[in-house]
Design a binder for these strands. Structure first.
Lengths: 243, 243
DNA sequence: GACTTTTAAATGTCAGACAAATAAAAAATG
DNA sequence: CATTTTTTATTTGTCTGACATTTAAAAGTC
């Protein structure tokens, strides 16, 4: 682990990168303890605050965790699917909100990704995951449900669909995309009729998953995409005409 | 922006979260300048090093950028697709290397995701993207190509396929998944026969994309997935029998 | 007016100190 | 001897204060 003394970059950024590289190439392995801050400061010939800034950068990416006390220190963290998922959601959410990504683009991406796991989910979903989908559909029929709760239930439904594929890599990638769209979805107020239409399609999809019919499930998702776009367009048009 | 004085968490983590929240809810907008470190220290009633640790955490996530000098400071950064993509690759790579994700699982996820954009790519790909695919296929036929170069070309081919969908959200998500698999793919040494088989399938896929036949392209990807798994299995079996 | 110099403000870095947490070692206690 | 309590050493968390470096604007100079 070395840094370039001639680089113009911040020392803390260089040190963070050096440690990160060491983790990536396997020089530092999971749960291994890094040298203490004082030792690192000595090694890199910098002060302790600089080392600390570097370590905080790594901690922000869940690459290390720190513990106080006698046997404490910084340890290489096993990046969990949960951590990765959380990062993915934050990144995607900010990306969508900061880059004027159109509703159409985000929607297309979301449903394309979901269709990708429909066939897998139809084959592998557990009874529990199917039950979750049914339960969320039922929740969505309740008339007193707020818009936020309806959207949250929608996310839970799709999350169960994605998890049904039984592939944690897919789950982590897709759940991020689906959840990141929630703020955009929350901008739309669904009428009772819209909700009924969505629930009907959800039922079709759940039935297809139930029967192991992956292609049908994918077709259901395509219909849902079309419906969602139609509803969104209606809302945006209404807003544009009433400024 | 406030922090909880009774929380047991690190002050720098709390402050970073507070600022992050402010960015997410839009209280701080892109390119807006944050208060200076001294002002933040005063606001949160902590010392400057603590504030700095918080800011470095945010910088590590590309949420802010800092500038030195008279009119310098920390500014809310517009998260670019490029930044998001880089983060995605790092996260996915570490996730795969640290969690003993099987080759099968990663492979399945990758091809499922790629199949999702095959129909879009068949409709929308530019002439340039198609030319890139053809060029990479040609490169892959060169006999003197090293294993690393072959894999890199493979990534470039699939990257062009994904970009062909013309959906930046999809590109950012999928390119991450594809690139993260490269270290796993690099573990496999392809025989000349394997390469020929891969190139033939790549040609099939490119032809399908050329003709706007999304379904055919997806089928080609499925064949490629099967082939890749078969080759990987062969390699792993050989290794297991010769320890 | 154009150029140079100065100045002020901000981040980057350093040094040293103390607080707080924690586990191991040592001491006290029954 | 076994158990409990106390001490101690180590490590991270935080603070104070200082200086270096960069940068743009202000002031000065020709």
């Amino acid at each position: 682990m070395k840094i370039d003394p001639n680089s113009s970059a911040d020392l803390s950024a260089q040190i963070a990168q050096a440690i990160k590289d060491a983790i990536i190439i396997g020089e530092l392995i999971v749960d291994q303890r890094l040298p203490s801050e004082a030792e690192l400061a000595d090694h890199f010939q910098v002060s302790r605050p600089t080392v600390r800034e570097a370590l905080k950068r790594l901690a922000a990416q869940s690459l290390i965790r720190t513990q106080r006390g006698a046997t404490g220190g910084a340890f290489v963290n096993r990046l969990s699917f949960e951590d990765a998922h959380a990062q993915q959601v934050t990144t995607s959410t900010l990306l969508l909100s900061m880059n004027a990504v159109s509703f159409e683009t985000a929607c297309e991406a979301r449903y394309a990704l979901e269709r990708a796991c429909a066939p897998l989910s139809a084959k592998r979903r557990s009874a529990d995951q199917l039950a979750t989908m049914r339960a969320e559909i039922f929740r969505q029929t309740q008339p007193n449900l707020s818009d936020e709760a309806f959207c949250a239930s929608d996310v839970a439904f799709h999350r169960a669909l994605v998890d049904g594929a039984g592939n944690p890599v897919l789950s982590y990638q897709l759940a991020g995309a689906v959840e990141a769209m929630q703020p955009l979805m929350n901008m739309i107020t669904f009428t009772a009729r819209d909700r009924a239409s969505i629930v009907a399609l959800h039922s079709q999809i759940a039935d297809a998953i139930d029967q192991g019919a992956g292609t049908d499930a994918a077709q259901g998702l395509t219909k849902l995409e079309t419906e969602t776009l139609r509803m969104a367009q209606k809302v945006f048009e209404t807003r544009a005409s009433k400024p």
